[in-house]
Simulated scan of single mutants.
Amino acid sequence: METGTENDSKYNSLETMTVAELLRNINNEDKTVPIAVEQALPQIEKLSEAVAIQMRKGGRLFYIGAGTSGRLGVVDASECPPTFGVPFDWVVGIIAGGDGAIRKAVEFAEDDDQQAWKDLQEFDINTNDFVVGIAASGRTPYVIGGLKAANEMGISTGCIVCNNGSAVSAQAKYPVEVITGPEFVTGSTRMKAGTAQKLVLNMLSTSVMIQLGRVRGNKMVDMQLSNNKLIDRGTRMVMAETGLSEAKAAKLLKEHGSVRKAVDSVR
């Protein structure tokens, strides 16, 4: 039986549409995605709280996925250190086929149900850690196998999928199901399903990091000062929190290396 994300598009004869019609119809489909995410908020809440509990124990968050889903996990993981100033190995994105698959698809990588666990073992995964499988269809063998093995080893598991009642969800202790339905181009889950997964990943990592104290007020006080834009932003944040002049705030930021430490040194 075909799953929702694989069902035929509601639109046909796409090649006969004007560009304006194509864009309008894609946009109309995209508008449905945040509504689908909203329906899953209770599931996302449970997942976020469970991840934070494990990370407070010193655990790490692992994302496993193939294709677009795997790439989205890698993107979210790679953005946590610069945004929240956490070590690079707190959140880890693993894609079927290895890092080369980020740029170029690796044939049949997603069909190996043993490989995800092998990939996770390279990080000395343990029972403090948390594994989230990402799969639009919810039937990717790489993800199913990885979650199944994690469960057998007593490691907490979650998932982000875009179909109901999937095999991936069945393996996840904390499943998130965002039901996005058929794509504009039939089966092209990089579109609505990918957008939904990106939104959920934003919510998950951000809410977890806030629970872990990596945001103060509404500011990224632990962000890495890795370019001039971020140094300027950090300087303004220190000025706002301390009332110091720009020159003094910049000096303090340079001395301490983070907004949090700079502000705390004054307080």
Rank of each mutant, 00 (worst) to 15 (best):
Y11A: 05
Q211W: 06
R24E: 14
T3I: 14
R260P: 04
D8R: 12
V208F: 07
L72G: 03
G58M: 09
S205V: 14
L225T: 03
T186M: 06
S207E: 05
S169R: 05
R190S: 07
V200A: 00
G70S: 11
M203G: 06
L23N: 09
L230M: 03
S245P: 04
M223Q: 07
T5Y: 01
K198W: 04
V33N: 05
A52D: 02
K251Q: 13
V143R: 01
Q211K: 15
R233Y: 10
R60C: 06
G217Q: 12
V176H: 01
I210A: 15
L199P: 02
V143S: 02
D222H: 15
S9W: 09
K192R: 13
R260T: 10
P141L: 04
L225H: 06
N164F: 15
N126P: 08
L253N: 02
G67Q: 01
G217D: 14
Y63A: 09
V185W: 08
K251L: 11
G146F: 00
T186H: 07
G67I: 01
L199S: 15
V132A: 02
P175M: 11
N163L: 10
E122N: 15
L147T: 00
V75T: 07
E49H: 15
F84D: 00
V143N: 04
A249N: 01
V74G: 06
D99F: 12
F88S: 15
L204N: 05
S169L: 08
A149Y: 03
D111M: 09
D112C: 08
D264P: 06
A167C: 11
F184L: 10
S69V: 00
L204V: 15
G67D: 00
V200E: 01
T242C: 11
L41Q: 09
G146V: 02
T235D: 01
E79D: 04
V86L: 08
K118F: 03
K219H: 13
N151S: 09
K192V: 10
E45D: 14
P141Y: 12
G59F: 01
N128S: 12
C159D: 06
L47C: 02
G234H: 03
D129Q: 06
T127S: 08
T3W: 11
L230F: 08
T242S: 04
Y63W: 08
V221P: 02
T83L: 10
A149V: 03
E21K: 10
E152L: 14
R139I: 09
N128G: 12
N228W: 01
T189P: 01
I125D: 00
Q54N: 14
T5D: 07
E246R: 13
I210Y: 14
A196Q: 05
M220V: 04
V168L: 08
A101R: 02
Q39C: 11
T18R: 01
A240G: 13
A50F: 10
A50H: 04
V161A: 11
N218E: 12
L41I: 09
V178S: 00
S258M: 08
I210S: 12
S13P: 07
W117Y: 10
G70P: 04
K104S: 13
E79C: 09
N164E: 13
K104F: 14
R71F: 05
G70R: 05
F88H: 15
E110A: 07
M237A: 07
I95A: 12
